[in-house]
Write a protein that binds this DNA or RNA. Structure first.
Lengths: 190, 190, 190, 190
DNA sequence: GATGAATGAGTGTTCATTCAT
DNA sequence: CATGAATGAACACTCATTCAT
């Protein structure tokens, strides 16, 4: 795998997301993705070892972007609740701007492909957030339960609410986002 | 004229779930499912119009079972919170007994296959629960927000917490289940 | 093969002709023919040993009808030319009334299926006509060339001219039929 | 990038003709044709969109060769009858050299596949001959009837007489060919 | 006599991947 | 670096036929 043309690599990621979103993993083929990206199927093998690698790389690329987006404007000195609200808003903003990407990750994370991902690598993009949660627990602001349970009420709701497939009726207005945040906060706050 | 073998149909559903869970939609083929079910690939087409129909039927079959399970022991006269707790417990119990089925639906619901399902048909299995929610809203016990938002905090958590992929560290103990219920209830109660 | 229901047998012949004409031998299947005939594929095997036998039987059935039709109103005492003209007219009349049947035989006779037919059996339906030809040769009215060559100019033209595929512009009017007859007669007469 | 192998394309045409002639459209499969051509079934799809396209292309290829062959030695200044005789002889010579090809076209032209052919494209290979016919009509040498009728007596006989299936007893000797020509000429001449 | 269930073998076509250019 | 040609293996699905009922 020799890397050269960065725009081609980018086009490949975008094509992968588009094709998989439109027809699912079951029907997605290297040929179709290549066609969408405007390159030859053979060229994909210059950028990626095989099909699996293409899919996994696409997933990690998107996750990296999400981790970065959530922490936009982050400031340790802010009150815990404000930090969460900011993260919450950042999350909705980022997702609404990258619906397709996020849609892809949902599909990916609920398939056996997820087993191929080195979760350590992904988690490090969210490290800072874990630290905030821990602080909240230590300061007795947040319930003292496992990160996983907290995530179920604080982070998954962002994904589900933003997912047209699951919540077709939830418009991403400031008001709706705040209402939902209050519910999430009620769930996790002590 | 031989008569249609009902056990074959059942074996087919189980094989579909098993194969899809193990290797995902991307690699699941009619031949593999048939082999797992111990029948000829051609026989599948006696029971189902095509592959799509097999997958969709499997999904609906599972959803039907879930809807039935959630309402086990249901009694209108119970207090709203108790009903939800019962549904919550029923949910975890059912899911823990049918992990594979439920795993399949997660994958299915996050793929384009879900678009092939007549949601009306699925929703009717959950009709009674919708009525309880409405009663809770009317009696000012539950927050007056859309069903979708409530579902995100009251029902999706069951799915995510039970999902080893997403919550490997969440053991389905009575204590954990109750802790999580309290968080869900905090989120939706007025 | 036990024969019972004559109308079913007839429906089967008609279905065979219809299906083969519409989609050709390449796509025709026992199942499609059975469906067209309104019976089960399995039932076909009560009336015919196998698919081949069904096709061949259909061909022979049609040929029998043609042989009979050509000789309608036949009378040995008529002048040779008049006999030919009568046969010619009978031919066009019969074909125009049984376009589909005739269409089927064209396709059949130009496929390897024809090799399965016992030509002796078919030829006997046309025996009388061969005798007339021989008389014409003996009486020095018709050119003394082989039956095959004479057939090419006297009988094949009926088939080709009646075939919409080959002669879309040839309307089966009395005038056209007579014009063509004169050409055929010019070809074979001494 | 490997370059398309023209001999492979040719082998494919020949294999198609051979297989279809031997077992008919009903039994001819892409796999059998590929095997006969010595290539992988998948390779066929590099040269042709699908099976249909392979068959149609083969037909057109053969027709093109025929059109060219008929006009060998063609000279406008020759008398009409001599031109026809030359075309007639060219036809028999070409057919006898390419029996298999011509056999294929007979089968093809009597099947629904013929409907897939752009007749305009085929007819242009015979354009010159149509002009000669028209000249013959204008000069009152040939009967003033439609091209189709003339073709039935002037061109179809070549095909039928050369067809072992229809005329097993017609040897392609110069004498036989001339005898038949005279009959054809008698049919169409004024 | 008639049929739907059942299937091994086959259908046309696409797959992920390699390779010569 | 990039590609179209090439393919063995697999794909979803249909085949002709048999068989229990």
């Amino acid at each position: 795998m020799r890397v050269k043309d960065e725009t081609k690599q980018q086009a490949l990621f975008e094509a992968t997301v588009k094709v998989v979103n439109e027809i699912g993993f079951a029907s997605s083929s290297v040929a179709k993705i290549a066609k969408e990206a405007g390159i030859s199927p053979a060229t994909i093998y210059i950028y990626h070892e095989n099909k699996e690698d293409l899919l996994v790389s696409t997933y990690i690329e998107i996750k990296k972007g999400m981790g970065r987006a959530l922490l936009q404007g982050f400031d340790t000195s802010m009150p815990i609740r404000d930090i969460f609200m900011m993260v919450w808003r950042n999350g909705f903003e980022h997702v609404s701007k990258h619906r397709a990407d996020f849609h892809f990750t949902e599909q990916f994370a609920n398939s056996p492909f997820i087993d191929l991902v080195d979760m350590e690598e992904v988690n490090k993009y969210f490290e800072t957030i874990y630290q905030v949660i821990q602080r909240g627990i230590d300061e007795k602001i947040i319930k003292d339960v496992s990160f996983e349970i907290l995530g179920v009420f604080m982070f998954y709701p962002m994904l589900i609410l933003s997912n047209k497939r699951h919540c077709s009726g939830f418009a991403l207005t400031d008001e709706n986002i705040e209402t939902a945040f209050n519910m999430a906060w009620d769930a996790i706050k002590l």
